[in-house]
Design a protein around this nucleic acid. Sequence first.
DNA 1: ATGGATTTGGTCAGAATAAGTCAATGTCGC
DNA 2: GCGACATTGACTTATTCTGACCAAATCCAT
Lengths: 159, 159
Amino acid sequence: MPSLTRIIERHIQELLERNGEESVFLSRKDLAERFGCVPSQINYVIRSRFTPERGFLVESQRGGHGYIRIIRLRMKKPEERANHIEELVGEVISEQEIKKLLANLQERKILTARERLLIEIAIRFQEQLCREMFDLSPFKREALHAELLKRLLRSIVLL
Amino acid sequence: MPSLTRIIERHIQELLERNGEESVFLSRKDLAERFGCVPSQINYVIRSRFTPERGFLVESQRGGHGYIRIIRLRMKKPEERANHIEELVGEVISEQEIKKLLANLQERKILTARERLLIEIAIRFQEQLCREMFDLSPFKREALHAELLKRLLRSIVLL
DNA sequence: ATGGATTTGGTCAGAATAAGTCAATGTCGC
DNA sequence: GCGACATTGACTTATTCTGACCAAATCCAT
């Protein structure tokens, strides 16, 4: 059974999907009522799902006629996507973060499942090598992962 | 008598088989209860059986409504399988040979251009690492290339 | 025009839940 | 008895959901 958060997330995504809108206006209060939850749950959904990392911007306004607006960013130029990925990966990245990042990129159709699999294997192999053969510190390993991951993603995102 | 790990592995595979599902959602807690073991046993089963090298992707989430999702990747066209990866690659392989092999696989539509690029970059990065950071002999480097290449190709080509 | 009432949304911390890690230990085939 | 594979449990980390309290925009009576 999916979590409430998941359900609300999907609902918002459907609204965005509809007509390929680039943004939606939501009422926190109404949403909370509709899904039978406390209003701050909506903030949680937004904070955890509609982040800049996932390609969204959020605006809001309080008071009468208040709203929450969710904007989906479209990165059309390959160079933009490459920079975006550069930021996402950073200088150092844990395997947990890598897995989440790859799942997310697949969700966004930036990667296919097969490409994701290849990347996971390449990273795992490097991890094994650096740990067992060269006895590198966790920090160095994570730095090398970040470097490899950036090169891999950059190359195919630019294609 | 088969080990518990095998039994649980079979169970998960059956769930995947059912209706040819591409993925299953599991509850670690429930599985452990059902098979009368400690929850971390499930992690062991997954770590040892449902690896990317065997064509599986695993996603998971902790906390409330947590889950473990196992995704099985499959080739669309079984006739396009490239067997004999072992012989093609061998124990040692030069970058020249790798390039030729990959070009050939792409020609035969077994790899996409993007997948080929990923593999080339992974190999090149490893080459650089082994040469500049660890000063490995050419022979050792070629042996590691062969190992990485086999893992990558086996997973994606033999699904 | 103004200021209090009303209407919204924001923040934060805590409880409950569930998965991950790791190292110690056990088991089985050779 | 050794080595690989399997099992266990103590400890760690992450996610969801809620509610009390805060902040801002608008409304409206004067």
